[in-house]
């Protein structure tokens, strides 16, 4: 598989994992290994003195690069502070910028996201913004200096797949930074479709961590991302209205 390059850093896996939703760190660990991921998101929250074990230990042990997110932020100001705290706590300038508009849909707020992205880029962060499937916003964020764009397939945790494949293709067509399909993946065919549409990578969590067998679904996602990438590069046949015989028609 050809390498994924984000902000000059190379990854041989095109599957980026989230860590949310796993019933235990052991289950998460097995799923991460099965997924083959090299880049995985974490959230920043108030320290709980009673907590035992840390997701950071799992990632360190498996040598997986940590990608902090700003999940739970509703404003640019909150997201910028969370990114600064993540940089301080984790020693990385990478951030998955996530600024949501409401708790029911968890849809990203484009205005706050753009504002935060500009401020974080100016502070030297490597910014990967989570956005709707909006080609215009994707282009504006790229122009603002984001290292990638991460359009959703469907709302977070919904498992609805890619609701607007046409918009994802439009984003891919005009982007010169990596396009990472983020959110909405339900099963392996969704991940394969994202790659067939030309996305550079897929980010998913719930589809694996809440599957009945997380490690097996993680393997399925790894293979699906590889298959989708290969199919994209192989060049699919055009869709036709009628049949085209693959055997000679004369006896």
């Amino acid at each position: 598989m050809d390498e994924l390059i984000i902000a000059g850093e190379k990854f041989s896996s095109r599957l980026i994992m989230g860590t949310g939703g796993a019933p235990s760190l052991e289950v998460l660990d097995q799923a991460l290994v099965a997924s083959g991921t090299e880049l995985t998101t974490v959230a920043m929250r108030r320290l709980d003195p009673a907590a035992r074990g840390s997701v950071l230990d799992v990632l360190r042990e498996r040598r997986i690069k940590v990608l902090p997110n700003t999940a739970g932020c509703f404003t640019a100001g909150e997201a910028v502070l969370t990114a600064r705290l993540a940089r301080e706590a984790l020693g990385t300038a990478w951030v998955k910028l996530e600024v949501i508009n409401d708790e029911r849909t968890l849809l990203p707020d484009p205005i706050e996201t753009f504002d935060a992205a500009e401020r974080l880029v100016a502070e030297g962060f490597v910014v990967l913004p989570y956005i709707g499937d909006d080609p215009a916003l994707a282009r504006r964020l790229e122009q603002a200096g984001c290292a990638a764009v991460m359009p959703l397939g469907a709302p977070i945790g919904s498992g609805l797949g890619i609701r607007n494949p046409h918009n994802i293709e439009l984003i891919v067509e005009s982007a010169s930074v990596p396009v990472i399909l983020d959110a909405g993946i339900g099963t392996a065919s969704d991940a394969a479709l994202a790659m067939e549409l030309g996305c550079d990578a897929v980010l998913l969590a719930t589809a694996v961590t809440r599957a009945q067998r997380p490690d097996q679904m993680a393997s399925a996602m790894r293979l699906a991302v590889q298959a989708g990438r290969l199919a994209r590069q192989a060049g699919r046949i055009p869709r036709r209205r009628y049949a085209e015989a693959s055997s000679p028609m004369t006896p």
């Binding site: 760190l25 974490v42 920043m44 929250r45």
Partner: peptide
């Protein structure tokens, strides 16, 4: 009070009355 205090200055930064201190770490998410 919404300003990051870097680890190297924790021991030398005194708190004031009514300060709001947030202490964060990474958890599963995203």
């Amino acid at each position: 009070n919404d300003e990051v205090v870097t680890r190297g200055t924790w021991a030398t930064t005194a708190l004031a009355d009514r300060d709001r201190i947030e202490i964060l770490t990474a958890v599963q998410g995203g």
